[in-house]
Design a protein around this nucleic acid. Structure first.
Lengths: 230, 230
DNA sequence: AGACCTTTTTCAAAAAATTCACAAATAGAG
DNA sequence: CTCTATTTGTGAATTTTTTGAAAAAGGTCT
């Protein structure tokens, strides 16, 4: 009972939580749990204990239990967690069952590479089209996706109820495209442009990808750790 | 003086720090500081205060000062930070002046897209070659980089003193390639393969990129935030 | 059906990260 | 050359995150 109340309060929007109900640290870990559970599922495992999962994932069992409990009691004492159930629950939590539709803006190398993956479909996101301003690619198809001119972006998004946009345009073009996307009613932007987008628009979420930052973190570790082990 | 002692102690490997001398949270933020400082540099700014930078970056000024102080006093009371100096200091800290040389393993869509960028050169990393096992691409050039057969990977790395490898091969091939890289004496692996690499090899660092996790974090926020703002 | 065993839940303690607040130092003005 | 307005450096307070450990609950085996 207790448990159910807790779950409901998380999703009860009227409570206007000042601090996020689930901490960002936990949310960042959810996709990783999802990944490992998917692996277990493919291996045919039916159940898993936090202890075994913790060994696989190199985190403490306590953290796994704590994390999962933020969303309600998905496990069972003396049994552990049902792999299939937990996997689908996390899918749901993460929004992969919402059926978001997306466009990729920018048909350069990175845009094409992303278009080629199964990344979106595997997470319940439907790729609908690509957009670019280069007349040589507009009108063609890339990995099965039609490429339209960026002029028609806002209208297309609104008409096709596009919820999510992948931004792989050059830095200079990004702000302009963002305006069009917002005009088109897009609710999430996955930003690969090499700049920070700080969209101050109610209800629009931006996730910035900075590959360069990651590369620098790596070179930092290489520089530092290698020295240590000497 | 105090200050200089502190800096030295950070880099003094004999101290064998059990806990990392600089916390991971700080390190994750360094590239972002570097990015903003580069921006300021391009704008011709000579100095910046933590307060102004904090406004630009949407973090607390206190955090900026605390972070930078982990590495020593780069600023000056009553003046702030010298943009050029601080930028170059952070570059150095992050290992971009080490002149690491890298190869890209996997000449698929993502490998090609990465090869096309200036990401590496801009961070002092020199791209040397690509590797693949597809006879149709072996022997060609991609964005100016020669493509060799993956057979010769280990030998090439050792001979050419390759420090860093970018892994964009399919998940299945990853473990095998990692073995070759380690044999070749590589010290850092930037892993885009859709799996967690846990290389337990003294002095070899792995940075995993999981674009899918980021996408899921975005769909989570879209699902959650949009509801809240209703 | 009952005792025991596993494993989650939950609450509390510990550790880590962030923010606060103020002393100390410097630049710049007059 | 002194005085004032800034602004860093820093130790302490606060908040957040992680870990630990007892309590509760469901399974398993005889």
């Amino acid at each position: 009972m207790e448990r159910i109340d807790q779950i409901e309060s998380i999703f009860d929007k009227r409570e206007a939580p000042t601090t996020p109900v689930v901490s960002p640290a936990v949310i960042k870990r959810l996709p990783r749990y999802h990944r490992y559970l998917g692996e277990l599922l493919r291996m045919g495992r039916l159940r898993i204990s936090s202890a075994e999962l913790s060994r696989m994932m190199n985190v403490t069992a306590s953290q796994i239990r704590q994390d999962l409990n933020c969303f309600g009691g998905f496990g069972q004492q003396g049994y552990g967690y049902n792999v299939k159930y937990l996997h689908s629950k996390i899918s749901e939590l993460l929004g992969t069952t919402e059926g978001f539709r997306c466009v990729i803006v920018g048909a350069g190398n990175l845009g094409r590479a992303l278009a080629a993956t199964h990344m979106f479909e595997r997470r319940g996101v439907e790729r609908v089209a690509m957009f670019d301003n280069d007349p040589r690619v507009v009108g063609t198809q890339i990995h099965g996706l039609p490429v339209y001119h960026v002029n028609s972006l806002a209208g297309f998004c609104r008409e096709m109820k596009i919820a999510l946009a992948v931004l792989t345009v050059p830095k200079e073009a990004a702000p302009e495209v963002v305006d069009m996307l917002i005009e088109g009613g897009v609710r999430g932007i996955w930003n690969f442009a090499n700049m920070e987008l700080d969209v101050e628009c109610e209800g629009v979420v931006v996730e910035n990808i900075h590959l360069g930052d990651s590369l620098m973190k790596l070179t930092y570790e290489m520089k530092t750790r290698t020295g240590e082990s000497k």
